[in-house]
Amino acid sequence: MTTLVQERKNKHIQNVQNSPVMTSADYVITARDFSVYYGEYKAVKDVNIALNRGKVTSIIGPSGCGKSTFLRCINRMNDLVPGCRTTGKLMMEGIDLYHKRLDVVELRRKVGMVFQRPNPFPKSIYDNVAYGVRLKGRPPQTQLDGIVETSLRRSGLWDEVKDRLKSSALGLSGGQQQRLCIARALAINPEVLLMDEPCSALDPKSTARIEDLIAELSGEYTIAIVTHNMQQAARVSDYTAFFYEGVLVEFGETSKIFTNPKNEKTNDYITGRFG
């Protein structure tokens, strides 16, 4: 059994190493033998993966496979879950994300998060975007206006809201609210953007807007997206990681995973034979 686990682990390391020629500087997030436990339950098992700088990585797998758990570890969201602990290493730019002296607030500035359901604050559109920036300090008003405008432009929302910045964010449609949340995450200039099923509560048109946005943001931001929508993973991501029962089964270029996955389980999952 141990040998099997070791073999599997070696394969994962090989997967990472076999990804297009990259040096360690090309990886923003690196996991080495990283595991997550909820009490006694091991939700993520000895994961080895490296997320490439400026690329979009989709994390797919059936419910309960550990994909969201893994994603949330990247900005330490799981700290809020009682009984949650980790082993192994999860690094960002060479910094151990679970180091006891790590400033978690600072980490969350560098790693933005967008959730399944849009969660704007009950404030104005402007204040939603400016919120994180104000927490960091009090920039001059003109600078703040500039940040709000740029962030809203980048999330593709500016033209729709520029005349009602002081209106409540709760008056926006679901798709607009989700793009507002993305603008809020972008305003603090993160390096990594985590998205946990960002389109699952949206209609097809709003989904398409978010997907276009992901494409526009890639290159500048490293994006990791958890999705149940296989076609979405195929459309938006450069790399895909398939998790099953807490194990990273396969990781590779999306074009290869969706045409010729190496692992039978991956093939069976993406072709809908289970899950």
């Binding site: 296989m230 076609q231 195929a234 995973i257 969706f258 045409t259 010729n260 996955p261 991956t266 093939n267 993406i270 072709t271």
Partner: peptide, 9 residues
């Protein structure tokens, strides 16, 4: 169905 992987092939 927009098949993928072995189904697409």
């Amino acid at each position: 169905h927009q098949p993928v992987a072995s189904d697409l092939r």
